[in-house]
Simulated scan of single mutants.
Amino acid sequence: MEVLTSQPTVDVATAAKAIGISRSTAFKLIAANEFPVRVIRAGKRIVVPTAGLRDLLGMTP
């Protein structure tokens, strides 16, 4: 997934797709503080740092 290497953060839907879960499941995990990587909340917006996703998916060298 090229977006994981070209952007510092992605939205929740993109992060969910990358790890193979639905968007609604991702939001449930975030609400329960159980999402597998760190999330950043900025007001109502939630973004996921791509560095954490790359680590989780084994994409970091």
Rank of each mutant, 00 (worst) to 15 (best):
V39A: 02
I19T: 12
K28V: 12
P36M: 13
Q7E: 03
L53K: 00
K17I: 10
F35Q: 00
P36L: 09
L29C: 14
F27L: 08
G52R: 00
A15V: 09
T50W: 00
A13N: 04
A13K: 05
R38K: 08
G43E: 04
I21G: 13
A51F: 02
R41S: 06
R54Y: 00
L29N: 10
I21A: 15
T50L: 00
A15L: 10
A42V: 05
A15F: 01
T5L: 09
K17P: 09
V47I: 15
M59Q: 08
V37A: 07
V48Y: 00
A51W: 01
V12T: 13
I40S: 07
A18E: 11
V48H: 00
K17F: 14
T25Y: 06
V47M: 04
R23Y: 15
P49A: 00
K28A: 13
M1T: 11
R23M: 04
G20Q: 13
G20L: 11
A32H: 15
I40G: 05
G58V: 11
S22Y: 04
V3C: 05
F35D: 00
K44P: 01
R54L: 01
E34L: 14
I46P: 04
P8R: 08
S6G: 04
T9E: 11
V3Q: 03
I46R: 06
T9F: 14
K17L: 12
L4P: 03
I19L: 11
T25P: 08
L56M: 07
A16S: 09
A18Y: 00
D11V: 06
P36T: 05
I46G: 02
S22F: 04
A18N: 11
G43Q: 05
L29V: 10
A13Y: 14
R45A: 11
G58M: 15
M1F: 08
A15T: 07
A31V: 03
T50P: 01
